[in-house]
Design a protein around this nucleic acid. Structure first.
Lengths: 155, 155
DNA sequence: AACAGATAGTTTCATATGTAACTAATTTCG
DNA sequence: CGAAATTAGTTACATATGAAACTATCTGTT
């Protein structure tokens, strides 16, 4: 009588999707807590601010594309930021469905406070890697992104 | 009159926490859909199955440590798996608070079906990288994990 | 012009998730 | 021993999230 074949096993701790997920969550949580504690912002709101600072007058749809947020999430983040007085909605002259979003002076003010903190936190994190390693990591992640989502651009 | 100093800007697309999060989500979602569509499992349920297959008789608390899930998530995943008939709870003889968890034959059955699919998906993904690059990626992620969570072991 | 899609964005609803409170069993220590 | 503190795990509640439906506007076709 044949042995029952040993089933293949899967060690979670070496399984890439698991490792990536755990690592990403650990990092995100740490930063999210910073945004929330210091400024009362969610990560989504912060992302909206970041792309709006980069491209004033951007539309909600375009924000979604650049941040990989779905339109509901964008809508909610925008609503929250407007309520907090950090973002302003300007009706577009050529398309009444869309709005042009811009940061208010208050929004720009806290943006300028957050950026250095975020960059410092990133720097602290990657300081464990040499410059060369940092570059290499970025490159490898780019390759993975291509393989994971051949359809859409991730960044 | 001095110029208003140009505020530091932050390009989301090169900001490591953002890139990691987007990449991880893209990969996780693809795999989650596989588990759900083919087997009706959530990612958490799958993780519980994976560590239970690896260590039969494991406790819920230990599952939490190994998978980085909090105890509520573990509790819910376990309850779901038991309901589906994939997992069995055995009261521990030496500590009445804890249960020893084991996969049922049905649970082992689908575990054996899932493992090759999960490994194949991972292989498809990392096939964009050479063997050397794969090793390097794992190494760099390990370093980052250490830097991001000096307190607890991530894997 | 006028109808049939498409598109921008919001709202609704059902589900997922995390925090805190809770129960029960165990350990610690006076 | 026995009260206080810890630990394993579940339940309850409040919030976050995503899918689908919806409103309003725009585009293309006839």
């Amino acid at each position: 009588m044949p042995e029952k074949p040993a089933a293949a096993t899967l060690r979670l701790s070496t399984f890439l999707p698991f490792r990536l997920s755990v690592l990403s969550n650990a990092i995100s949580q740490r930063i999210a807590e910073l945004y929330d504690r210091e400024f009362g912002l969610s990560v989504w709101q912060w992302r909206v601010m970041a792309v709006t600072a980069d491209t004033p007058g951007i539309s909600a749809t375009e924000i979604g594309q650049r941040t990989q947020m779905d339109k509901v999430a964008v809508s909610r983040a925008v609503a929250g930021l407007i309520e907090m007085g950090y973002l302003e909605r300007r009706p577009s002259t050529d398309d009444a469905r869309r709005s042009n979003l811009v940061l208010t002076p208050a929004g720009l003010g806290i943006y300028d406070l957050i950026v250095p903190l975020a960059l410092a936190e990133e720097a602290r994190l990657v300081s464990a890697l040499s410059d060369k390693e940092q570059t290499e990591l970025a490159r490898l992640m780019g390759k993975l992104a291509g393989a994971s989502s051949p359809d859409r651009e991730l960044w």
